[in-house]
Simulated assay, not measured.
Amino acid sequence: MKAIRELAVAETKACFRKQQPIADIDIQLGETPIELEHVIPQRAQALFSKERCRAIGALFTFATDDPAEQCKRRSEAISAVAALSLRQEWRVPQVCRPKEEIHRASDKGQDTESETRSKANLVKFSFECLPTQCIFCLGQENLLLELRTKEFHSRSDLKKHFHRKHLRHYSDGLPIECPHPLCDETLSHKMHLQNHAATIHKTLT
């Protein structure tokens, strides 16, 4: 059985080495339409957000001879990258633990990451934030609860985060909705949002 299995693996590798270069050349020449699976394997797509998959799919496309199609392709790429820039993705460090500890934690009923996210949606947030909380982070339901309710070390740190991570993605002079999960106010511009955050939500940004 071992010899048959090794022979089958060798034949599969030989077939791949023979056919894959031709398929790659066809894709580069534009004879085969490029699909998202060619850039990101199907199993890996589950690890990417829909905004990131959309951006990758829009950027990894071939130029066409039709000016209208080329303009449409560029517009989609710009829109996809703009949508991705508005999404804040946090990197949660993974801590390696022995298998025994993992099993003990599961036996104790410790929450998984998905359960933590679902519980975050059930939390009753206060209309008035703590002085060093970010109203944008509070409004992002895809974040873990501890990231949504994070308190910064100082007001200065909050202001830097507020402008670098969130406010700079919005155009000057255009209306902006308050991102707080309990607020549905639409403010006339970015400065109005900052005043609203200070007077209504008690956080200085």
Score class of each variant (00 low, 15 high):
Lys72Glu: 14
Pro41Ser: 15
Pro98Glu: 13
Leu167Tyr: 03
Ser171Cys: 02
Pro33Ser: 09
Ala63Pro: 03
Gln45Glu: 12
Glu69Arg: 15
Arg117Cys: 03
Leu167Met: 15
Cys134Lys: 03
Glu35Cys: 04
Ser118Tyr: 03
Asp107Leu: 08
Ser49Asp: 09
Ala8Thr: 08
Phe136Ser: 04
Gln20Ala: 04
Ile34Arg: 11
Thr203Gly: 05
Gly173Met: 02
Leu84Lys: 03
Asn195Leu: 08
His192Leu: 05
His196Arg: 05
Gln133Tyr: 06
His163Trp: 05
Ile56Glu: 10
Arg87Thr: 07
Ala46Pro: 01
Cys71Gln: 11
Ile25Tyr: 10
Asp26Gln: 14
Lys2Leu: 07
Gln19Arg: 07
Leu143Ala: 11
Ser106His: 08
Ala55Met: 13
Gly173Arg: 00
His153Ile: 05
Ala198Pro: 00
Thr205His: 00
Glu51Cys: 06
Glu115Ala: 06
Ala44Val: 13
Ile56Cys: 07
Glu113Trp: 04
Thr61Met: 10
Lys202Gly: 01
Pro175Ser: 01
Leu158Trp: 01
Glu6Asn: 05
Arg74Thr: 01
Ala120Lys: 02
His161Pro: 12
Ile22Cys: 08
Cys96Ser: 14
Gly57Gln: 09
Trp90Thr: 14
Gln194Pro: 03
Phe136Cys: 11
Glu51Leu: 03
Leu86Tyr: 04
Ala77Ile: 00
Arg73Trp: 02
Gln45Pro: 08
His153Tyr: 02
Glu101Asn: 11
Pro98Gly: 09
Gln88Glu: 13
Cys183Ala: 07
